[in-house]
């Protein structure tokens, strides 16, 4: 619609949002549910080997995702090609995607740990995954709206970084 280069720029914005979202979701999970509330357990005896690897991969990956997401954000801003709505859409997709993966595959499929112990899990699971789905829907809507908005700049060439920075 707008040419390859513009799409590529938008992709970078969305990728930045998704990565930051994954990193943020993992960070909230770790600080709020593991460290502050003590709802999640560090290690649950029912964890499978695949569960350990999946947990390790996402744990290590989420820190990298956070760093990569933020540095990509800085890069698109510097180029003056940031599409804020697309970034927020990506962020919601990352947040919701991670939470849904965690709530269904990791908690239920691999049995890494449950949301909370010693309570009826059903309302917790429904709330957890419900919020995840809402975030995914919100992210998708934002991305659709962003793709309908014409790009503010067609090339970083014609958009000096200074103007975008002053916004």
């Amino acid at each position: 619609m707008y040419g390859k280069e513009v799409r590529m720029r938008r992709t970078r914005t969305v990728v930045s949002g998704v990565l930051t979202g994954i990193g943020t979701a993992a960070f909230i999970d770790e600080t709020v549910f593991h460290q502050l509330l003590h709802w999640h357990h560090f290690y649950d005896k029912s964890t499978t080997d695949v569960g350990l690897v999946s947990d390790g991969l996402f744990h290590a990956g989420s820190w990298l995702a956070m760093v990569a997401g933020l540095v990509l954000y800085a890069d698109v801003r510097r180029r003056g090609t940031l599409v804020p709505r697309a970034w927020w859409g990506g962020l919601c997709l990352g947040l919701g995607g991670f939470q849904l993966y965690d709530g269904t595959f990791q908690h239920k499929g691999l049995g890494i740990h449950q949301i909370r112990y010693g309570v009826d899990l059903a309302p917790y699971d429904w709330t957890w995954n419900g919020i995840a789905v809402l975030l995914l829907v919100a992210g998708a809507l934002l991305l659709v709206r962003a793709s309908r908005t014409p790009p503010r700049t067609t090339s970083s060439h014609t958009a000096p970084t200074a103007t975008s920075r002053n916004r």
């Binding site: 350990l52 820190w63 990298l64």
Partner: peptide, 20 residues
């Protein structure tokens, strides 16, 4: 980035398995 991801995963998995 790929090596850092693989190394971080190996480290986290080993650390968690030592818990048990």
């Amino acid at each position: 980035a790929a090596v850092l991801l693989a190394a971080g995963t190996a480290h986290a998995v080993l650390a968690k398995s030592l818990y048990a």
